[in-house]
């Protein structure tokens, strides 16, 4: 986003950070995932997943339904914390800090990563209230400023024209596709450094999908995007990097170019060729 309207809270979210075992990840990786295991009630969902999310680029996570894409994405901002029986081990580092280290301010951490859930979920308040929710939490009080933030982010997701005359209606009356874009606007309003999108365009028609994809392509100049997608064509259109998941394991990751045209692994070849998944 071009002009920063309110001071972004760049303070480190770690209180008493202790250097963890050195991990080798690519230079200034936005996220660095090493040996991530997630299990629920002892049943593993993710097994030893490792990959890097390069900065200022789009990383697409692909794989058949049920392979653990959503689980993976949610472990990147500790959304599993309150799931009873869910156990996460391994390392996820952001700017070299392990997000699972003790003493991490989880709220501040999550603020740096906008998570778009697989099912768009609007908060029980107005359209305006939804977009203003995050900024208000961080102390933006001036109505003028809030209005500017709301307008800018709704415009960014191509929703402004449709809703500008009913900003104060309950967000629940919007169509599912509109809600999906509202959720994106809401996430952008807190100015995250990373966007985690779980099929962020699943409820959108081709035109609206194109709007969002173009927005993501513009956004990647400033932030890093991790996108779970079901549609391989979308991944081909916008991905810089691709992570292929299969049955809870990371099978292959690399540049989009390499994964799509010259995959190393047979499973990847079959999946991108359309014979599995």
């Amino acid at each position: 986003m071009e002009n920063i309207l309110f001071e972004m809270n760049t303070s480190v979210f770690v209180d008493n950070y202790k250097a963890t075992a050195p991990v080798s990840c690519i230079e200034n990786a936005a996220l660095c995932i090493r040996g991530l295991n997630v299990a629920i009630q002892g049943k593993p969902i993710l097994k030893d997943v490792s990959f890097d999310v390069p900065p200022k680029s789009i990383t697409c996570i692909i794989g058949p339904s049920g392979c653990g894409k959503t689980t993976l994405l949610r472990s990147l901002n500790r959304m599993h914390d309150y799931t009873a029986g869910m156990k996460v081990t391994g390392q996820v580092t952001i700017d070299g800090n392990d997000i699972y280290a003790p003493g991490v301010d989880v709220a501040a951490l999550r603020r740096r990563m906008g998570l778009l859930a697989q099912r768009p979920t609007v908060l029980p308040m107005s359209v305006f209230g939804n977009v203003a929710y995050g900024p208000k939490l961080y102390g933006v009080k001036r109505g003028e400023l809030l209005r500017a933030i709301v307008e800018r982010n709704l415009k960014a997701v191509g929703l402004w024209e449709e809703v500008h005359d009913r900003l104060h209606s309950p967000a629940g009356i919007l169509s599912v596709g509109q809600q999906q874009r509202l959720c994106l606007a809401r996430a952008l309003a807190v100015q995250p450094a990373i966007i985690l999108g779980d099929e962020a365009t699943s409820a959108l028609d081709p035109l609206a999908t194109r709007t969002i994809e173009e927005l993501l392509l513009r956004l990647k100049q400033q932030l890093s995007i991790v996108l779970v997608t079901h549609t391989l064509r979308q991944a081909r259109r916008i991905a810089d990097h691709v992570v292929f998941m299969y049955m809870g394991e990371m099978v292959e990751s690399g540049s989009a170019q390499q994964v799509f045209s010259n995959p190393v692994h047979d499973l990847t070849r079959e999946f991108v060729g359309g014979s599995i998944g």
């Binding site: 901002n77 709220a107 501040a108 999550r110 906008g114 859930a117 609007v122 929710y133």
Partner: peptide, 10 residues
């Protein structure tokens, strides 16, 4: 709904 709020840093 709770997660939508938590994800925004609440």
């Amino acid at each position: 709904l709770r997660e939508a709020s938590l994800a925004l840093g609440a």
